[in-house]
């Protein structure tokens, strides 16, 4: 594999991590959705590049799913939901931006040092890809923890899944079965979430899940 191919792969995967960071400090839902769309589009480019340099045409399918489904359809649908619920102007902040960003940097440092040390035997491209992918997964988790709003938790979860796809495509020759199922699971997850969002709305007139916590059966 030549140096340019490697550099481009590196850059694309690195940008996905960077956009994960951008998501951490978006406190408005619509902005968050736009950044998520960018995240998915970059993922799609990274996957398509992997397809080219690995000579694995089936990965283009994964790239296309990421581009059309995650970067377009899902953000558009969530836009609609948010507007219909009338929460598109809401500002949410549970943990301060500074602390979240510091925690994020710590997680990225952790995953890079962990993966690069442990995967000394694997080929360079797969190593870096896995390190970036783990960072994206951990940043997604961080986002799910620091947000209260159900929609941003969903976005956090989807960015986490993006990290998983990055890992799966970085692993050379991983069977298509798994990739399609990953995409499929996102679809199912989205349907499930959609159902829940509407149900939550029906009952509480809010999608802030701290409102749900009042109903803990065990307290009182």
């Amino acid at each position: 594999m030549n140096a340019t191919a490697f550099d481009v792969a590196h850059m694309l995967a690195g940008s996905v991590v960077l956009v994960s960071f951008m998501m951490l400090y978006q406190d408005r839902l619509l902005a968050l959705l736009n950044v998520f769309a960018l995240h998915a589009a970059l993922l799609s480019a990274a996957v398509a590049w992997q397809a080219t340099i690995q000579g694995a045409p089936h990965l283009y399918v994964t790239a296309a799913i990421a581009l059309f489904f995650k970067a377009m359809i899902i953000p558009a649908a969530l836009h609609r939901i948010i507007r219909r619920l009338g929460i598109h102007r809401e500002v949410e902040q549970v943990v301060g931006t500074g602390i979240t960003m510091l925690a994020g940097m710590g997680l990225v440092a952790l995953s890079i040092s962990l993966m690069l040390n442990l995967t000394a035997s694997a080929d360079a491209l797969a190593r870096e890809d896995l390190a970036f992918a783990l960072s994206v997964v951990l940043l997604g988790l961080l986002m799910m923890i620091t947000r209260r709003n159900a929609v941003s938790q969903v976005v956090g979860f989807m960015s986490l899944e993006n990290g998983l796809i990055l890992a799966a495509t970085g692993a050379r020759g991983m069977p298509l079965v798994v990739e399609i199922s990953v995409a499929f699971s996102v679809l199912i997850a989205f349907i499930v979430i959609g159902v829940f969002l509407f149900r939550i709305r029906e009952r509480f007139d809010t999608v802030d899940d701290s409102a749900l916590e009042r109903f803990r059966g065990d307290v009182g």
Partner: peptide, 13 residues
């Protein structure tokens, strides 16, 4: 019910 929805959401996440 609100309790069931919270439980399902927590379980899902």
């Amino acid at each position: 019910t609100p309790e069931a929805l919270e439980a399902a959401w927590k379980y899902f996440i």
